[in-house]
Nucleic acid binder design. Sequence first.
DNA 1: ACGGATACTTACCAAAAGGTGCATACTTGA
DNA 2: TCAAGTATGCACCTTTTGGTAAGTATCCGT
Lengths: 121, 121
Amino acid sequence: MAKENSENPRFICGLHATLHVISGKWKPLILFFLNKGPTRYGELKRSVRGVSDKMLIQQLKELESDGIVQRTDYGEIPLRVDYSLTPFGRSLVQAMEPLCGWGEEHEEDIAAAMDRRKASR
Amino acid sequence: MAKENSENPRFICGLHATLHVISGKWKPLILFFLNKGPTRYGELKRSVRGVSDKMLIQQLKELESDGIVQRTDYGEIPLRVDYSLTPFGRSLVQAMEPLCGWGEEHEEDIAAAMDRRKASR
DNA sequence: ACGGATACTTACCAAAAGGTGCATACTTGA
DNA sequence: TCAAGTATGCACCTTTTGGTAAGTATCCGT
C-alpha cells in the first residue's frame, strides 16, 4: 500500500543499480569477451589474462545469477561448458557502449590521474 | 617509439577505464546531486544520506583529482566551500545516462537478484 | 564563555574483495 | 600408470574499502 515504484529507497538512481551488476574487477572484461560470442571456460580464462580460476568462476556465477550470462553444460564426456550473453546481457552491453566511448576518448587523462594518485600515496 | 595508443595494456576497453573513475560506494550519488548544480559541502552531506565525513571528502577528492568535480573555496569568513561538475564531469554524466536508463528499467530485476544472492550466502 | 555550525583531518577497526595454491573427478594420450 | 587437460571447489591470507568516533580551527549567537 505504500509508495513502491515512485520512490524506491534501494537505489538512488538507475546508475546506482547498474553499478551493482557490473562492478567487480573482471566483469567488464568478461562481458567484453562474451560479447564476441559464446566462449568455453578455458578459452575465456586465456582471454582474460591474469584472472584466477576462483575469480573467473565467482564473477561468472554472479553474472549468471543476475541473468546477464548463461552457462551451458553440454554434458559431454570430456567436460565441456560454455558461457554466453543472455538477451538481457546484450541490452546491458549496449547501454554500456557510451561509457566505453567516453573511456576510450579520455583513456589517457584517466590513466594520468590514476598515476598521480598512486604516486602521492 | 613503441606502439603506445594502438594497444594500451592499461585498460582492456574504454568501459574498464571509465569504471576506475565512477566506482566507489558514493560516487554515483555525488555525481547525481552535483548534476543539479554547485552544492556546498554541508548540503551535499545532507543530500547523500548516510555518508560519513571521511567518505564524502575522500570521494570528492578523488573525483576532483580525476578532473570530474571542482572545489571552490570562497575564502569567506564563516567557512564556505562548494563543489560542482567540471565540463569533463558533465560529459561523463552524459555518457552515464544510458546506464541510468538501463538501471531504471531493470531496477526490480537487479534488486531481486541482489536479494537472492544475499539470501543464499 | 559556551554550544553549535562550518569544513575538514586523523587514528583505529571491521568487512568485503581479491589472490594463491591445493583438491576433485573424469578423460585422453604417452 | 603417469602427466596433462577439462571445469570447478575450498581453505587461507592479504589488500582494499568503508565505518566510527574523535579532534581541529574559525566563527556566530546568546
